[in-house]
Amino acid sequence: MSANGTKIIRVIKGRRPKVVVIGGGTGLPVIVKALHEQDADVTAVVTVADDGGSSGVIRNYINVVPPGDIRNVLVALADMPGVERDVFQYRFNSNDSFFSGHAIGNLIIAALSEMKGGIFPAIQVLSKMLNVDGHVYPASNTPLTLHAEFTDGTTQAGEAEISAAGKTIKRIHVEETDPDDHFEPRAEPEVIDAIMAADVVVLGPGSLFTSILPNLMIKNLGDAVKKTQAEVIYITNIMTQKGETENFTDAQHVQVLHDHLGEPFVDTVLVNISPVPADYLDRQRYNEISSPVKSDYPALRKMGCRVISADFLKLRDRGVFHDGDKVAAEILNLAFQVGTMKKR
């Protein structure tokens, strides 16, 4: 947006910049919404390995892909009146043993998944119903379970259980949740096509091991991210996360990504340089937060990454977040630099 609030329309060779954002959690819809408002052609690829909260309960009842992250991204890209948006996002607070804590949108997604034979076709139908500008793709059409191996040699299954284990994660992988499915997890062709056609592919922000990597561990999806000619951007988290990345530098985050995919593939890293004020964070409410991520520019450059440092910090509600507008502007600047030319 310009200073007077007028939308700035920017194009690459007669079209809107194509941005694919891969991840999950609360940070994903913030970035997706800001990119949409700055007129990018956005495709969101959302993790399906979440097993907590309302999504987890619904998944346990009817064995569908957890809908919570997908619901929030749909709303970020939807063009619908405020009252409809509020109803879709409404979370029951009754004492009913089933409905308590469930978001209406999660129930709608679960119902459509049964009607259409999977989460992927269900979300495409719902995208039309909600007037979504862009694309929302589940990383897989079937529920996946996250598995972790820790540095002490033990293993654990389940996103919430892995985070709660309090151990250092060595490696993660995903498997089909349904024990009767014996095939390798796969992303749908539309996901792969979007990644290959993108100007930029964005990873994060979000939990490294439980929001970003589960997507990349789907083999054909990870292979596409390595092969695409798009600029691959990693948004470094502002804070480290207990049970996942305590004491990690930004370079260590990237190294984990490279190690899991077997080769360097991240081109650009966005790093926040604005300090987090002491005693601002409500650590009871945001109890998964540990400490600010430290920067290791020499290590990032040694890995061949371009580093963009700026004030990406937004403080609100006694929490620490990325400023979606600033991050989106930087992503689009990179998209226009890269255009449709091949990287490297």
Results as ranks from 00 to 15, higher is better:
residue 39 D to M: 09
residue 331 I to V: 14
residue 109 I to M: 08
residue 52 G to N: 08
residue 159 E to L: 11
residue 153 G to H: 03
residue 90 Y to N: 02
residue 250 D to R: 01
residue 69 D to T: 13
residue 29 P to L: 11
residue 105 G to M: 08
residue 339 G to N: 08
residue 137 Y to E: 08
residue 31 I to M: 11
residue 80 M to D: 00
residue 305 C to S: 13
residue 256 V to Y: 03
residue 33 K to R: 15
residue 49 A to H: 14
residue 338 V to G: 04
residue 198 A to E: 11
residue 320 V to P: 08
residue 308 I to A: 12
residue 36 H to S: 11
residue 327 V to A: 09
residue 13 K to G: 03
residue 62 I to N: 10
residue 334 L to Y: 07
residue 271 V to G: 05
residue 306 R to W: 05
residue 324 G to P: 11
residue 3 A to F: 08
residue 34 A to P: 00
residue 50 D to R: 07
residue 255 Q to F: 01
residue 331 I to P: 02
residue 53 G to N: 15
residue 4 N to C: 12
residue 55 S to L: 03
residue 251 A to Q: 05
residue 253 H to I: 03
residue 63 N to Y: 05
residue 168 T to E: 12
residue 336 F to L: 04
residue 274 S to L: 07
residue 109 I to C: 02
residue 50 D to E: 11
residue 331 I to G: 07
residue 25 G to Y: 13
residue 95 N to S: 06
residue 59 R to S: 12
residue 72 N to R: 09
residue 85 R to E: 06
residue 262 G to E: 12
residue 218 I to Y: 05
residue 258 H to V: 00
residue 341 M to K: 10
residue 42 V to Q: 06
residue 193 D to G: 09
residue 95 N to T: 01
residue 169 I to R: 05
residue 10 R to H: 07
residue 179 P to W: 11
residue 195 I to S: 02
residue 199 D to G: 00
residue 301 R to P: 01
residue 139 A to P: 10
residue 273 I to N: 10
residue 231 E to L: 10
residue 148 A to I: 05
residue 112 L to G: 00
residue 111 A to T: 12
residue 295 S to E: 03
residue 329 A to R: 15
residue 288 E to W: 12
residue 1 M to C: 03
residue 198 A to G: 14
residue 332 L to K: 12
residue 101 G to E: 07
residue 82 G to K: 00
residue 280 Y to V: 03
residue 233 I to V: 15
residue 305 C to G: 12
residue 231 E to C: 12
residue 191 V to H: 12
residue 196 M to F: 06
residue 248 F to C: 08
residue 3 A to T: 06
residue 232 V to H: 05
residue 111 A to S: 10
residue 328 A to I: 09
residue 158 G to D: 14
residue 321 F to A: 12
residue 179 P to N: 13
residue 108 I to P: 01
residue 325 D to A: 13
residue 294 K to Q: 10
residue 41 D to I: 01
residue 45 V to A: 09
residue 150 F to V: 09
residue 101 G to P: 02
residue 174 V to M: 09
residue 44 A to S: 09
residue 104 I to V: 06
residue 229 Q to R: 14
residue 157 A to Y: 04
residue 265 F to Y: 15
residue 61 Y to R: 10
residue 344 R to Q: 02
residue 255 Q to V: 02
residue 18 K to D: 02
residue 314 K to V: 05
residue 319 G to W: 08
residue 170 K to Q: 10
residue 10 R to C: 04
